[in-house]
Nucleic acid binder design. Structure first.
Lengths: 226, 226
DNA sequence: TCCTGTGAACTTCTTCACAGCC
DNA sequence: GGCTGTGAAGAAGTTCACAGGA
């Protein structure tokens, strides 16, 4: 996962163990959501095939994914819905609530701040910050937008490790620098920019237009071969 | 075959636009962005190492990615920035503009509608639709929110193939059904739901909280091993 | 020399197929 | 009979290392 910069292989990095593969990790929340619909429908157990169909993936993949968490199924029967929900949540680290700070109170920052999908997954938006004075003081969701200067205090107060960057591309690097200085060690970046951060800081990037471009590419290929 | 611009016979280009892997496809827009900063800085050429460092990836990966488009570099020199920009854009299908329709004018739909990153990538938001009467008639960006009922007309008028679903999870499947009925063949789904669509329809899903959960997972593992 | 382009090695992810248990 | 868990095969993606042109 970690990339060693050019050349020498890093044995220390290789020895760092990772229990659950990232590809699996990305699907666990999906399984959780499907399991909740099963629970709501009153199902006590479900099979890997049912889970797979509802999640739109291959049944073998479901079983392999779940096997990374342990052996929580019963042969000939399937999985206990409630127990499996608990085990997946535990595997994901949802046993605790993570406070995050969102920097940028524009459309995207506001959308994230009011996004209902975080709370049930153990993520709480502790603060929304912005440098634009016209935005500071307004309210998104039930959180007041505060100036970026309070970053250090906010990070310290809520023991924040994770931040979301939802500012324009030009401002992203400076924001990232301030986040790192404040002690944040994981950044989710929505800005169209490549962030330079120290190796101990983890960055994930979401580019809203990349997904559309991939769809457009395939549409074009459809048109070409038609 | 299609028209090959200019006199230089380039058999590689003709066959190269064929098989671009999705993993590569997802990085091409990133390279485009980096190249633009190089162009803005006045650079005429750049090497795979420079490109890789600015993009935060391995140099060999850059070269392999670009090789899927054809052989546009010069050994011993590097790549011509402007020419490479053109070739990547062409490979991505940015030679034409794609009209898309966004369904859902909530925070996320609004954020997407006003997102500045689409236009430079050949994506135009042709319409924003919503079922909520209180939202219909309002304006996001420079587009008026219209009722979902005009979907068929909008899709037909703009020859729309790609749609974005930014509605609550409960409404997502019905919206998807209507999109498919209207003739849309690619859907970008932001709703927390698994969409069931016919095989000729392509769906990509973006889950905003999954990314945060993956970061939280790794944070937890850091804490455990500390 | 420098740098690209690419076969080959390597790693990661996916899928198959079946042993083992209910 | 049904279903899980998993070794092994297969596919996809990444990285290495070097041949070969500028």
């Amino acid at each position: 996962m970690r990339e060693t910069p050019t050349g020498t292989p890093d044995p220390a990095a290789a020895s760092a163990t990772r229990d659950v593969p990232d590809a699996t990790l990305a699907r666990l929340p999906l399984y959780l959501r499907v399991l909740q619909t099963f629970a709501d429908a009153g199902a006590a157990t479900c099979s890997s095939v049912e889970l797979a169909e509802a999640a739109g993936v291959n049944p073998a993949k479901v079983r392999k994914d779940l096997s990374h968490l342990g052996s929580y199924g019963t042969r000939g029967v399937g999985y206990d819905v409630e127990y499996l929900q608990y085990q997946i949540a535990r595997g994901l680290g949802q046993t605790q609530t993570w406070d995050v700070v969102i920097v940028g109170a524009g459309n995207l920052g506001s959308a994230l701040s009011t996004y209902g999908g975080f709370a049930p997954r153990g993520i709480r938006v502790a603060a929304v910050l912005d440098t634009d004075p016209s935005r500071v003081g307004s309210t998104v969701g039930d959180v007041e937008v505060r100036p970026l200067d309070v970053l250090d205090a906010v990070v310290a107060e809520h023991a924040i490790a994770i931040a979301v960057v939802a500012v324009p591309g030009e401002a992203a690097q400076e924001v990232a620098d301030r986040l790192v200085a404040a002690g944040v060690t994981s950044i989710l970046n929505f800005a169209p920019a490549v962030l330079q951060v120290p190796p101990h800081v983890q960055v994930r990037k979401v580019d809203l237009s990349v997904e559309l471009q991939i769809l457009a590419y395939h549409e074009q290929r459809k048109a070409e071969t038609a």
